[in-house]
Design a protein around this nucleic acid. Structure first.
Lengths: 165, 165
DNA sequence: CCGTATCCGTCCGGATACTG
DNA sequence: CAGTATCCGGACGGATACGG
């Protein structure tokens, strides 16, 4: 009733786009090897890769600089994540034959091209972070806690679904 | 020399945006609990959540429908991922008191709002999937294989970096 | 300085069987 | 139909020590 029509149109468009791709993936047999979501996004969603891409977005950095900059990462995970990113062609590794040797990591052209979509998603995450924390708090303490706060928003079952017509 | 100036400007803007946020996170102590990337994107990047969001983008679905639709997912992971998405407020769960009971999952308003950024990222993944596969192939077999293919593209170390000024 | 190797605990995630 | 419980292998991920 009081919904925003513009927003509905926008999400409807996104729905259609995604539904089409989803159907296409299914048509291709939905092989894990051929599904971009499972092959590409799973890597990007890995614990540290996004953070590293953002760190490298600022400027090229050396190994120990990254180690200091991303506070909780361990040597092992830094090496491993950088290698994964390098393997996917998002980051390039440049060795300077100094003594002691120094290695610099920088975003490749493809790595820079992902910053756009990534920025959008990070922006969404920041914008909705309060809502998400609120939803989590409601969900976690919700069962035992206040039932009166959310009365009319809880959708109740009114029209039973026919069980597999 | 032959770079595209427009693209450089665009990525420069993204760089600046991300660098600012990164600096802001650092200023806040970089606590894991307060970093949207680590708190929100890690969940979205989880193995199945993106796929489920896309599946639910098409239309609301019931448990076993999702189980059939996302071929490789197990009951356990489907339950768990749906609960996580529900906890974050991206998916709502509606129980119909039929016999046997039926449960329908649908995107919440916030869940629909993520489709935009997600579509962008999925689009990027699809667009660059061939390049990524190529990069992987080069990286995996690259060390032993053809060195002549990529001659002038390999950046060599020319100017040694001063070791911590 | 830039990693690799090793050890080791934790959690992810699949298979199966069972309940309401 | 829609889950929960249990088991179990393997991957994730930290700490430490060592090598180039």
């Amino acid at each position: 009733m009081t919904r925003l029509p513009a927003q509905n149109l926008a999400t409807a468009a996104h729905r259609a786009t995604l539904a089409d791709r989803y159907a296409a993936w299914r048509a291709l047999g939905f092989d894990a090897a051929r599904c971009p979501v499972r092959n590409v996004l799973d890597h990007l969603g890995s614990k540290w890769s996004t953070l590293l891409l953002i760190a490298l977005a600022e400027k090229p950095m050396r190994f120990n600089a990254l180690l200091r900059d991303v506070p909780d990462i361990s040597r092992r995970m830094l090496t491993q994540t950088l290698r994964d990113l390098e393997r996917d062609g998002l980051v390039s590794r440049q060795v300077f034959p100094t003594k002691p040797p120094s290695v610099e990591y920088r975003l490749s052209a493809m790595g820079e091209s992902v910053l756009g979509p990534l920025t959008a998603l990070v922006g969404w995450a920041e914008q909705h972070f309060p809502d998400i924390e609120q939803a989590r708090a409601r969900f976690d303490g919700g069962a035992a806690g206040s039932a009166a706060l959310e009365g009319p928003n809880d959708r109740v079952a009114l029209a039973p679904v026919p069980v597999r017509g």
